[in-house]
Design a protein around this nucleic acid. Structure first.
Length: 288
DNA sequence: CACTTGACCTGTCCGC
DNA sequence: TGCGGACAGGTCAAGT
């Protein structure tokens, strides 16, 4: 589910909602919540204060005053939802998409000393939350392998193009989804940026020209920045830290728009499988 | 090594 | 209405 823009939206929400709060109580369902955790997770969390909320690729990092960090991957259906004293009901502008919490999909609940709560929900249970010393976070395998942040100001089109060379013989869709090439791109923004750059997802990387890479770089950054501005994409499960949906899907050009028309040329958008994923293109704008 | 495929889970939707 | 199968936004491990 959540790609870079969704995780960044959650990060920004949590940053304003939980920094400075102190953990009073912890509930977690099973080993799934904290694989490889210190033996008693509660002892490491209780009385710790939230000091920062960071993001790297699609991974959320909640730093604690104890020099430990909660490392969270939402995978397909994960949610991090904060609930204060006030819960807004149906019809209110701040209405949450999520009902009573905890619910069936709640895996971890953190209760703060002020009585508010942070819930980690995950319907499909692919996501995880780990606790580790802050200094060890950069040493986990994923952090060592993951590529650069595409929205960083110093990330250039030349570096972007260069990083694809390691995946020369695969198709561009598989390569752009490869987290070791560039961080944070998932299925939605892969399709949207390939449409923007008029590149067919099944084109082999070693057939893509320099100017096409530059265009793809520009489109990817534009589409991700727009998605952050719109609070991410809510297709089914995704919600921000307040339980509200994102609106990027209202602006999507091809993703989940099969049978509708291409905003550029009016041809009918089609869907097929590429790199094992549902893939949407305009067959006129994007030729193989 | 480079690349592809299946597994991890639950819920929903579609066709019979 | 019921049921089986396909599918869903991510990443790994295991396979070729």
């Amino acid at each position: 589910m959540p790609e870079l823009p969704e995780v960044e939206t959650v990060r920004r929400g949590l940053q304003s909602l939980i920094i400075g709060r102190t953990i009073k109580k912890v509930n977690h369902d099973t080993e799934k919540g904290f694989p490889n955790a210190p033996t008693d997770v509660r002892a490491f969390l209780i009385c710790a204060m939230i000091t920062d909320v960071r993001r790297r690729a699609k991974v959320l990092l909640i730093d604690l005053s104890t020099e430990y960090t909660l490392v969270i991957h939402l995978k397909m259906t994960g949610q991090m939802v904060y609930r204060g004293e006030q819960v807004f009901g149906a019809g209110h502008p701040n209405e949450s998409l999520i009902g009573e919490l905890p619910d069936k999909s709640t895996r971890v609940t953190l209760e703060f000393t002020d009585g508010s709560h942070l819930y980690f929900n995950d319907q499909r249970k692919f996501g995880w939350m780990r606790l580790m010393p802050t200094l060890e976070v950069p040493n986990i395998d994923f952090m060592k392998k993951v590529g650069p942040e595409p929205l960083e100001a110093d990330f250039t089109a030349q570096e972007f193009a260069g990083r694809f060379m390691r995946r020369g013989k695969t198709n561009i869709k598989a390569a752009i989804l490869d987290q070791t090439v560039v961080a944070g791109v998932g299925n939605i923004y892969a399709d949207e940026s390939l449409w923007g750059a008029k590149i067919h997802p099944k084109r082999l990387v070693n057939t893509i020209t320099d100017s096409e890479f530059i265009l793809l770089y520009t489109e990817l950054r534009a589409v991700m920045n727009l998605a952050i501005e719109k609070g991410g994409s809510t297709d089914k499960n995704y919600v921000n830290a307040e339980g509200k949906r994102g609106s990027y899907m209202d602006f999507a050009r091809v993703f989940r728009r099969e049978g509708l028309t291409c905003p550029r040329c009016d041809a009918e958008i089609i869907k097929f499988k590429a790199a094992g994923r549902g893939t949407h293109i305009c067959p006129v704008c994007q030729v193989q």
